[in-house]
Amino acid sequence: MLEGKVKWSNSEKGFGFIEVEGQDDVFVHFSAIQGEGFKTLEEGQAVSFEIVEGNRGPQAANVTKEA
């Protein structure tokens, strides 16, 4: 699992980007967020995730919010 911080997200469009130190930003779709209820990410929020190869390149999977 990698750790990063949410660079920005748009809940209306359903995606955002995660900033990882020393690496390119990672695309995240809201379907990759683990948990119940409305899935949102806040700018600056710490997250853990895996990287998978998506249709348009690397993207985050199994995203969990850190406490």
Results as ranks from 00 to 15, higher is better:
Lys65Trp: 10
Ala67Trp: 10
Phe27Leu: 05
Gln23Val: 07
Ile33Pro: 02
Gln59Phe: 08
Val20Leu: 09
Gly44Ser: 04
Val63Asn: 02
Glu21Tyr: 12
Pro58Asn: 07
Gly4Thr: 01
Leu2Asn: 06
Gln34Glu: 11
Ala67His: 12
Gln23Trp: 12
Gly54Glu: 04
Val47Thr: 02
Lys7Trp: 02
Ala60Met: 01
Phe30Glu: 07
Ser31His: 07
Gln45Cys: 11
Glu66His: 15
Pro58Met: 09
Val63Thr: 01
Ile51Pro: 03
Gln45Val: 10
Val28Ile: 08
Glu36Trp: 07
Val52Asp: 03
Glu21Ala: 13
Phe15Leu: 03
Phe30Met: 07
Gln34Asp: 08
Ala60His: 02
Ala32Val: 08
Ala46Lys: 15
Gly16Tyr: 10
Phe17Pro: 01
Glu19Pro: 00
Gly4Trp: 00
Val28Arg: 00
Phe49Asp: 01
Ala32Glu: 10
Gly37Phe: 08
Gly44Asp: 03
Leu41Asn: 01
Glu19Ile: 08
Ser48Lys: 14
Thr64Glu: 07
Lys13Phe: 09
Ile33His: 02
Glu50Asn: 11
Gly4Lys: 00
Arg56Ile: 07
Thr40Ile: 10
Glu19Arg: 11
Ser9Ile: 15
Val28Tyr: 15
His29Ala: 06
Thr40Tyr: 12
Ile51His: 01
Ser31Cys: 10
Gly4Tyr: 00
Val52Trp: 07
Asn62Leu: 07
Leu41Phe: 06
Trp8Ala: 02
Ala60Glu: 03
Glu42Ser: 11
Gly37His: 08
Gly14Thr: 13
Val6Phe: 03
Ala67Phe: 11
Phe17Ala: 02
Lys65Leu: 15
Val26Gly: 00
Met1Thr: 12
Ala61Ile: 13
Glu66Met: 15
Ile33Asp: 04
Ala46Ile: 15
Gly57Pro: 03
Ala46Leu: 15
Asn55Phe: 15
Gly14Trp: 09
Lys7Arg: 10
Ser48Asp: 03
Val52Ile: 12
Gly54Asp: 06
Lys39Tyr: 08
Gln45Pro: 00
Ser11Pro: 14
Val6Lys: 00
Gly22Met: 05
Phe30Leu: 07
Phe30Ser: 07
Asp24Ala: 14
Thr64Ile: 14
Gly35Cys: 10
Gln59Gly: 03
Trp8Thr: 03
Phe15Cys: 05
Asn62Val: 05
Asn62Asp: 03
Arg56Trp: 15
Ser9Thr: 15
Asp25Trp: 06
Glu66Gln: 15
Gly22Arg: 03
Thr40Gln: 09
Ile18His: 01
Pro58Glu: 03
His29Asn: 05
Gly54Lys: 05
Glu53His: 13
Asp25Ser: 04
Gly14Arg: 13
Lys5Tyr: 11
Gly4Phe: 01
Gln45Arg: 06
Lys39Thr: 09
Gln59Met: 12
Phe49Asn: 01
Gly22Thr: 03
Glu36Cys: 13
Val26Pro: 00
Glu12Thr: 12
Gly4Arg: 00
Ile51Cys: 07
Val63Pro: 01
Val6Gln: 00
Glu3Ile: 15
Val63Gln: 02
Glu12His: 10
Lys7Met: 02
Phe27Lys: 04
Val20His: 04
Val26Lys: 01
Gly14Asp: 03
Gly14Phe: 09
Glu3Met: 15
Gly57Trp: 04
Ser31Trp: 06
Val63Ile: 05
Glu66Cys: 15
Gln23Phe: 13
Gly14Glu: 06
Pro58Leu: 10
Ser31Met: 04
Leu41Val: 07
Ser11Thr: 13
Gln59Asp: 02
Ile33Thr: 04
Lys65Gln: 09
Glu12Asn: 10
Lys65Pro: 12
Lys13Asp: 04
Glu53Val: 14
Phe49Pro: 02
Gly22Val: 01
Trp8Lys: 04
Val47Cys: 04
Leu2Ala: 07
Ser31Asn: 08
Gly16Ala: 13
Gly22Gln: 04
Thr64Asn: 10
Ala60Asp: 01
Gln34Val: 15
Phe17Asp: 00
Ser31Leu: 06
Asp25Lys: 02
Glu42Asn: 10
Gly57Ile: 02
Val52Asn: 04
Ile33Tyr: 04
Ala61Gly: 08
Ile51Asp: 02
Trp8Leu: 05
Glu66Ser: 15
Glu43Cys: 15
Glu3Asp: 09
Gly54Ser: 09
Lys13Tyr: 08
Gly44Val: 01
Val63Trp: 00
Val63Ala: 02
Leu41His: 02
Gly35Ile: 06
Phe38Glu: 14
Lys13Ser: 07
Ala67Met: 12
Asn55Ile: 14
Gly44Gln: 03
Gly16Trp: 15
Ala46Gln: 12
Ala67Glu: 12
Gln34Ala: 12
Glu3Gly: 09
Glu12Ile: 12
Phe30Lys: 08
Ser11Ala: 14
Ala46Phe: 14
Lys39Glu: 10
Ser9Pro: 02
Gly57Ala: 03
Asn10Leu: 06
Ala67Ser: 13
Ala61Phe: 08
Asn62Phe: 08
Glu43Thr: 14
Pro58Ala: 07
Gly57Gln: 02
Pro58His: 07
Glu19Cys: 13
Lys5Ile: 13
Pro58Ser: 07
Phe15Lys: 01
Thr40Ala: 09
Val20Trp: 08
Ala32Gly: 06
Gly35Trp: 09
Gln45Ser: 08
Lys65Met: 13
Met1His: 10
Phe30Asn: 06
Phe38Gln: 13
Val63Tyr: 00
Ser9Gln: 08
Glu21Pro: 14
Val52Phe: 08
Phe27Asp: 05
Thr40Pro: 05
Val20Arg: 07
Thr40Leu: 09
Lys5Val: 13
Glu19Lys: 12
Glu53Pro: 09
Asn55Ala: 14
Asn62Ser: 08
Val6Ile: 12
Asn55Thr: 14
Gly14Lys: 12
Val47Phe: 00
Ser48Phe: 14
Val20Ala: 04
Asn10Cys: 14
Ala60Ser: 02
Glu42Thr: 12
Gln23Thr: 07
Gln45Ile: 09
Ala46Ser: 12
His29Asp: 08
Lys7Ala: 03
Val20Gln: 03
Met1Val: 13
Gln59Cys: 07
Val26Leu: 08
Ile18Glu: 00
Ser48Met: 12
Leu2Glu: 04
Val47Gln: 01
Asp25Val: 04
Glu50Met: 11
Gly54Trp: 04
Gly4Ile: 05
Met1Asp: 03
Ser31Arg: 02
Val52Ala: 06
Phe15Trp: 14
Ala60Phe: 03
Glu21Gly: 08
Phe49Arg: 01
Val52Ser: 05
Asp25Asn: 06
Phe15Pro: 00
Lys13Leu: 11
Ser48Gly: 05
Asp25His: 03
Leu2Lys: 11
Ala60Thr: 01
Asp25Gln: 02
Val63Asp: 00
Glu21Asn: 10
Lys39Met: 11
Gly4Ala: 00
Ala61Thr: 10
Glu36Thr: 11
Gly35Phe: 06
Glu50Pro: 03
Met1Leu: 12
Gln45Ala: 09
Phe17Leu: 04
Glu43Asp: 08
Glu43Trp: 13
Glu12Trp: 10
Glu66Ala: 15
Glu36Gln: 11
Val52Glu: 07
Phe27Tyr: 09
Gly22Asn: 07
Ser9Ala: 15
Gly44Lys: 03
Arg56Glu: 06
Glu53Tyr: 14
Met1Ile: 14
Gly22Asp: 06
Glu50His: 10
Gly37Gln: 08
Gly37Thr: 09
Pro58Lys: 11
Gln34Leu: 14
Asp25Pro: 07
Val20Asn: 01
Thr64Tyr: 12
